[in-house]
């Protein structure tokens, strides 16, 4: 009997396999295309309607004045619905999808440890969330530069910074939105460990995101609302002011990071102990 040899580079192979699965799946590619269409459509609409700088809604006139603002506008438009939807689909599918095809039992008997599987699935989800944000920002910047040019970035207070600093601020905004969506992704992954029906996990996550938005609109809830995942979701506007208040940024990311920690731990605990009956 041959001794079992654990080989080098296993994690790399597993991650590569997972990323190929995520990024080759037609459904997932289609969602990225939809997200990429948002800045293209907004940019084209603004370009065709062509309000002069200073006219129209503030964000729109900012776009006409500066290309990079197209990325920020598209991100702001995608954050309430489209991005949470994409995250729910990917993260809700993470374990429920494997359970529904029955492939979960075959991965576990390969064997892959449950903790390792959790790590690999998480990596796939994180990569997709990052890709979803980046595609909006990058396509936005390209379309914006083409239509309106990027010559320094004019901030919300009228101050203009260099293209380099503009790019840095765009990266900061991407990171902020990424942290926002992490909380939702962790929640969806936890729900995904509770069911063998991926659509159920996706729908439940979307419903919860809507519940957050509804509760947010009830003023009687007072300070309780600051515990809602979505309460500070749009705090990245801070990165478009002249003086960035880092304290505020940290405060705004505390809630999403807490959701991430709590639900990622719950998802791992559930996956590590659950009977696989699918």
């Amino acid at each position: 009997m041959q001794p079992v040899v654990r080989r080098r580079g296993v994690l790399g192979r597993q991650l590569r396999s997972e990323l190929l699965m995520v990024f080759r799946r037609k459904r997932n590619i289609a969602m990225l295309i939809v997200l990429a269409l948002v800045p293209i459509l907004i940019g084209t609409a603004v370009f065709v309607a062509a309000p002069r700088p200073g006219e129209g809604p503030p964000l729109v006139s900012q776009i006409a004045g500066n290309g990079l603002f197209l990325s920020f506008a598209a991100l702001t438009i995608c954050l309430p619905v489209l991005l949470p939807l994409a995250v729910s689909v990917i993260a809700g599918d993470a374990f429920a999808g494997e359970a529904s095809t029955g492939t979960l039992r075959y991965l576990l008997t390969v064997p892959v440890s449950r903790t390792r599987l959790f790590a690999i699935k998480s990596a796939g989800v994180l990569a997709y969330v990052a890709a979803a944000i980046l595609i909006i920002i990058v396509v936005g910047a390209i379309v914006g530069a083409t239509y309106f040019g990027i010559n320094g970035v004019t901030l919300l207070n009228g101050e203009t910074v260099s293209n380099g600093e503009g790019a840095l601020r765009a990266a900061g905004i991407a990171l902020f939105v990424f942290v926002d969506l992490l909380g939702l992704a962790a929640l969806a992954m936890f729900i995904s460990t509770l069911t063998e029906v991926p659509i159920g996990a996706m729908a439940a996550t979307v419903v919860l995101a809507i519940v957050f938005a509804v509760l947010e609109a009830v003023p009687q809830l007072g300070s309780f609302r600051s515990l809602l995942l979505t309460h500070h979701w749009f705090g990245f506007g801070e990165l478009l002011r002249g003086e960035v208040n880092m304290g505020w940024l940290l405060r705004d990311t505390t809630i999403p990071l807490s959701y991430t920690a709590i639900f990622a731990a719950a998802a791992w605990a559930r996956l590590a102990t659950a009977d696989v009956t699918s």
Binding site: T101, G102, T109
Partner: peptide, 16 residues
Amino acid sequence: LPRVGTLVEGPAFYPY
């Protein structure tokens, strides 16, 4: 388990 080949309750693979 690396030394065990399994077929549990029918085959199951990614349809796509």
